[in-house]
C-alpha cells in the first residue's frame, strides 16, 4: 500500500521524529510508521508521538526542526488548514520539516474520497504573510517513496517546510515498488537550537519589530526563493513534436492521463502530457516550451481547475479544464475524448 511504502521510505531515509494526528485518509501513514518505531534496524528513529491536534503536531515539527532533527507528519485538508499557522512561522524562521498532505474532498469536512483541491491553498500562500513552501507532487507509489527522501533533503538544504501533495488514491493504492534510499539524510545543523554548548548562540526567530529588520529577513527569504526556483522539475510524456493536445495533470490524474495519451498516440493523435514534479517551484520554462507547440491544452484535475489557473497565469493561453469533483476519478476514455 502507498501508505506503507511512504512509511518505509521515510524511516529508511533517516526520519528522526514523527508527530501526527489521525485524519482520514492519511492515518494509514501514521499507523505504518508507528509499527516501525523502536525497531533495532532504525536506531535514528527517536520519537513517535500522537499529538492532541494538528496544531500541536505542526508545532512539534517546528520544535524538532528548530533543534535540527529530520521530522515529518502526514495530514489531510482540514488538518493542513490548522497547520497553516505553524507553517507560516516555520517559513519565516527557516525551520525545515516535511508534511505529507493526503488530499481529500473539500471544502469543509467534504468527504474522504480523493481530490486535488488543496493546490491553490498550498501554492498561493500556505499561511499568513506570504508563504511559499516547496511542494512536491508524486504520481505513483514509487515516486512517493523517492519524494519523501527528496523532501527531507530539500527541507534541510534550503531550511524550508516541504509539502508533499498526494491524494487518497495513491496512498491507498497497491503497487510494486523497488527502491533503496541512496543514503540516509543526516543534515549538518550548526544553526540548530540545541543549547549554546560553549559556542555561539542560536536563535530561531520570526519577530522583527523594526521595519528594516523585517525587510531584511523578507529579502533574504526572497533571495532563497530564487535559489529554489532552480530546482524546478517536470516531466513531459510523449512530447516529441508539435502536439494536437497537451494534457496537464499531477498525481493520480497524471497517471490516468498517461494511459489516455498512449491510447491517442495509437490512434495517431499527437498527444502529450506535461506533469510538474515540483509544483512549487513550477517549471515555467518547460511549460512555456511545450505549450507553445500545442494546439490545445487540457488540464485534467480532480477539482474545479486550480492547476489550470496556475498554468494560464504562466502561458497566458486558454486552458480547457476537465474537472472531476467530489471524489470522482478521471476516466481514461473521457480524458482521451477531450482532445477534440
Amino acid at each position: 500500500m502507498g501508505a506503507k511504502a511512504i512509511a518505509e521510505a521515510a524511516v529508511r531515509s533517516g526520519l528522526e521524529a514523527y508527530f501526527g494526528y489521525p485524519i482520514t485518509p492519511s492515518s494509514e501513514i501514521m499507523e505504518n510508521i508507528s509499527v516501525l518505531y523502536g525497531e533495532k534496524r532504525y536506531p535514528w528513529f527517536k520519537v513517535f508521538l500522537q499529538s492532541a491536534s494538528e496544531i500541536e503536531s505542526v508545532n512539534m515539527l517546528f520544535g524538532a526542526g528548530a533543534a535540527g532533527y529530520v521530522s515529518m507528519t502526514a495530514t489531510s485538508g482540514p488538518g493542513l488548514s490548522l497547520m497553516a499557522e505553524g507553517i507560516s512561522y516555520a517559513y519565516a524562521s527557516e525551520v525545515p520539516f516535511l508534511i505529507i498532505d493526503v488530499n481529500r474532498g473539500g471544502p469543509g469536512l467534504g468527504n474522504v474520497a480523493p481530490e486535488q483541491s488543496d493546490i491553490s491553498f498550498v501554492l498561493n500562500s500556505l499561511g499568513h504573510g506570504g508563504v511559499k513552501p516547496i511542494v512536491l507532487a508524486p504520481h505513483t507509489v514509487q515516486e512517493s517513496m523517492e519524494h519523501v527522501h527528496k523532501g527531507f533533503e530539500l527541507a534541510f538544504t534550503y531550511r524550508i517546510p516541504v509539502i508533499m501533495l498526494t491524494d487518497a488514491l495513491i496512498v491507498h493504492m497497491y503497487d510494486t515498488v523497488e527502491w533503496e534510499p541512496p543514503y540516509i539524510v543526516k543534515p549538518k545543523v550548526e544553526w540548530a537550537a540545541r543549547g549554546r554548548n560553549y559556542g555561539p548562540r542560536h536563535i530561531i526567530n520570526s519577530i522583527y519589530l523594526d521595519p528594516p529588520e523585517l525587510k531584511g529577513n523578507k529579502e533574504k527569504l526572497l533571495q532563497k526563493q530564487k535559489e529554489i526556483d532552480k530546482i524546478a522539475e517536470s516531466e513531459c510524456f510523449m512530447c516529441y513534436d508539435d502536439l494536437d493536445v497537451l494534457y496537464i495533470a499531477i498525481g493520480i490524474s497524471a497517471r490516468i492521463s498517461k494511459e489516455a495519451v498512449l491510447k491517442l498516440r495509437k490512434k495517431g493523435v499527437k498527444a502529450g502530457l506535461f506533469r510538474p514534479i515540483t509544483l512549487s517551484p513550477l517549471d515555467k520554462n518547460s511549460i512555456l516550451k511545450y505549450s507553445s507547440h500545442a494546439e490545445k491544452i487540457v488540464s485534467v484535475e480532480m477539482n474545479e481547475g486550480q492547476l489550470a489557473q496556475e498554468i494560464m497565469r504562466i502561458t497566458r493561453k486558454d486552458v480547457e479544464v476537465l474537472p472531476y469533483l467530489g471524489g470522482y476519478i478521471p476516466d481514461v476514455e473521457e480524458v482521451a475524448e477531450a482532445w477534440k
Binding site: 528522526e16 521524529a17 508521538l49 500541536e56 512539534m60 520544535g63 533543534a67 524562521s93 536563535i203
Partner: peptide
C-alpha cells in the same frame, strides 16, 4: 543569553515537548 526558539501564540509547550524528547540531556 541562551538558545532561543520563538513559538507561535500559545504553542510553546508543544515546541518544548518536541525539543525535550529529542534532546533529553538539555534543559
Amino acid at each position: 543569553n541562551v538558545d532561543y526558539v520563538q513559538a507561535p501564540h500559545g504553542r510553546a509547550p508543544a515546541i518544548m515537548s518536541a525539543i525535550k524528547l529529542l534532546e533529553k540531556d538539555k534543559v
